Simulated assay, not measured.
Amino acid sequence: MTGEAADKLFICEGDAVLEGGRGVRFAVTAFGDEATGFVVRYGGAVYGYLNRCAHVPIELDWAEGEFFESSGLFLMCSTHGAIYVPETGQCAGGPCKGGRLRPIAVREELGKIYWQPDEFIKPPRVIPIQPI
């Protein structure tokens, strides 16, 4: 692979991400630190974000992969209740006060979901295995 195709990284099979429900986390390096991103499905499309609340830099999901509040209409921070619009990551209420989630470019191709690193969100660092 060359160019753009070589840079896309596999996240999961498309059917692992449920409409307005369970999402999938994936490892990233964000602004130089180890972190996680996540992908959710809403309105038939997939959306990816850094798993970090705009209010306080903590992960959103209350259980692994659980990003939506009970109605399935908004993403919600499990700690302080900040809610976000799934299509844009924009704060829709709570203590995030006009903030937004940091987007990660994702796309679905042939039933598989991929993400695209950028200058701030990069692939996870590989930890070398030390010989015994």
Rank of each mutant, 00 (worst) to 15 (best):
Y114K: 00
C91V: 04
P57A: 15
G94C: 07
D7Y: 04
M76I: 14
D7N: 13
G20C: 04
V56I: 08
P103Q: 14
G20S: 12
Q116I: 07
R52A: 03
V17M: 06
K112E: 15
P57F: 15
T29E: 10
I132H: 01
Y49K: 00
G20I: 02
G81I: 08
D33H: 06
E34C: 10
K122P: 00
G94Y: 02
I58L: 15
E64Q: 11
A16K: 11
M1Y: 12
R102Y: 10
H55I: 03
V24R: 01
Y49V: 01
G32C: 09
G32R: 13
R100K: 15
R102V: 08
H55W: 05
A5E: 14
P86H: 07
F67A: 02
Y84V: 05
P117H: 07
V40S: 01
G99A: 09
E69G: 03
G21S: 10
V56L: 11
Q116R: 02
E69T: 01
I132D: 05
P128T: 08
C12R: 06
E108S: 10
C53F: 08
A63F: 10
A6I: 02
A30S: 12
G98S: 03
A54M: 06
T29W: 04
G37F: 02
P95F: 15
G14P: 07
Y42L: 00
G44C: 02
S78F: 04
G14K: 12
R100P: 00
D15M: 05
G21E: 03
E64C: 03
E64T: 11
E34H: 11
Q130V: 15
G81F: 11
E4A: 11
A54Q: 09
I58M: 13
P95W: 13
I83S: 01
P95N: 15
F31T: 04
D15R: 10
G65F: 12
Y114W: 13
I83E: 00
F68L: 11
K97R: 13
D61G: 12
G98E: 09
Y84I: 05
Y114H: 07
P86R: 05
G81A: 10
K8E: 12
Y84E: 04
F26I: 08
F38I: 02
R125L: 14
E19R: 09
V85I: 04
G93W: 04
R52K: 09
P57N: 13
A30W: 14
V126D: 10
C12S: 13
Y114V: 06
G98Y: 07
I132C: 00
I104V: 15
I132Q: 02
F38W: 00
K112W: 08
K8Q: 01
G98W: 03
N51W: 03
A63C: 09
R100Q: 13
I83W: 01
P131H: 14
G65E: 05
H80Y: 10
G3S: 10
V40G: 03
